[in-house]
């Protein structure tokens, strides 16, 4: 199938490009470019998470900022307790990424399970509104809970550590983010090829048929939603370390919109769609943000054009329609 191999080629170019551009920047001494690439990798990872719910499962969550933000807050809160050497819920804080990540994934996963369990009682427009509303609840809770910065957010004074690397160096942090993204993509690839992935994609297309062959749509969708929230939460923890700041805006509604934009610009449901989408979005912001303070106007117009005239996203434009053998 030439379309399939064209998609593999696009994926390879995206992965190599994301690695080689910052490598060039390292050589040329341009740390800002490395940081941009790190941001793309982290946003892409958040998109990989959302893509499992939205792309594979057809669950249009407009509330994934909640899990992104929860991941970020876990990183910020654990780091603060480690910094001040105080316990949190009777346990010590941590400044080790390898400790922070599982906790971030666990707590975002628990929240995604709770919110998903309620939201999946409905579908369609209801589902979109409810996921948005619950995410807003988490946001309001974060800004009104006084212990961790409230509306001001929570700084991370010293970036959390990863064994064998110096995360304060941009290139080292990029390697961490890139590595996690690649693991996330590999997991996502396996998932979509697995029995679970088949069931999930089948439910998106025809839930009644899936049930008639013995698949419980609710259980499969809820599991996918939880996994999706966990991966997006992991991305949030990384983002907090990149910006060294946990900001309530990371869980505000525009972030949820941005994550959807990333997926659609890249190509909904495509394995590397979020990578392409994150690169387009960050590239757009850097390019046009430097020219005009109203760059979001142009972003909005481009998005409108993409919805109305270019369905299928970038990978769809290059590799054609997706096929499942």
């Amino acid at each position: 199938m030439p379309e399939k191999s064209r998609e593999y080629a696009v994926n390879a170019v995206l992965a190599l490009g994301l690695l080689l551009v910052p490598l060039w920047a390292l050589w040329a001494g341009e740390p800002f470019t490395i940081t941009l690439a790190t941001r793309i990798a982290i946003l892409a990872l958040a998109g990989v998470g959302l893509n499992i719910a939205l792309g594979l499962g057809g669950m249009v969550s407009f509330g994934h900022a909640a899990y992104f933000g929860i991941g970020a807050y876990v990183a910020g809160i654990l780091a603060q307790h480690a910094f001040l050497n105080t316990p949190v819920l009777g346990l010590p804080g941590s400044n080790q990424m390898l400790t922070i990540w599982p906790v971030a994934m666990l707590i975002s996963g628990v929240m995604a399970t709770a919110i998903g369990a309620l939201s999946l009682r409905t579908s369609g427009i209801f589902f979109i509104m409810i996921t948005l509303a619950f995410a807003q609840m988490v946001f309001y809770f974060a800004i009104s809970w006084p212990a961790y910065g409230g509306e001001d957010g929570l700084p991370i004074y010293v970036r959390n550590q990863f064994p064998g690397l110096n995360t304060m160096r941009p290139w080292d942090l990029f390697l961490v983010a890139f590595g996690v993204l690649m693991v996330g993509l590999a997991f996502s690839a396996l998932l979509r090829g697995s029995r679970f992935g088949a069931a999930l994609m089948a439910i998106r297309q025809n839930p009644e048929r899936a049930a008639a062959v013995g698949i419980n749509p609710y259980g499969v969708q809820l599991t996918a939603f939880a996994i999706s929230g966990m991966i997006t939460g992991l991305a949030g923890a990384l983002m907090a370390d990149l910006t060294r700041f946990t900001s309530p805006s990371m869980m505000a509604w525009p972030m949820s919109g941005e994550l959807i934009v990333i997926i659609i610009l890249g190509g909904t449901g495509r394995l590397f769609g979020p990578v392409a989408g994150a690169a387009i979005l960050v590239g757009f912001e850097v390019t046009f943000g430097g020219m005009t303070e109203h760059w979001k106007l142009w972003l909005g117009l481009v998005l409108l054009g993409a919805v109305l005239f270019a369905r299928g996203g970038l990978i769809g434009l290059i590799a054609g329609k997706e096929r499942h053998g």
């Binding site: 396996l190 998932l191 090829g193 697995s194 029995r195 679970f196 992935g197 088949a198 069931a199 994609m201 089948a202 297309q205 025809n206 048929r209 899936a210 062959v213 013995g214 698949i215 499969v220 599991t223 997706e322 096929r323 499942h324 053998g325």
Partner: peptide, 29 residues
């Protein structure tokens, strides 16, 4: 039917659920 799936994958979907729960995440179908 599952419109994007091939005829074979449609049947595989039914077969896999006879063989047990769908919560197998990593092994490629």
């Amino acid at each position: 039917l599952i419109p994007e799936f091939s005829a074979r994958r449609n049947v595989m979907l039914a077969l896999q659920s006879r063989q047990g729960h769908p919560f197998r995440f990593l092994k490629p179908v």
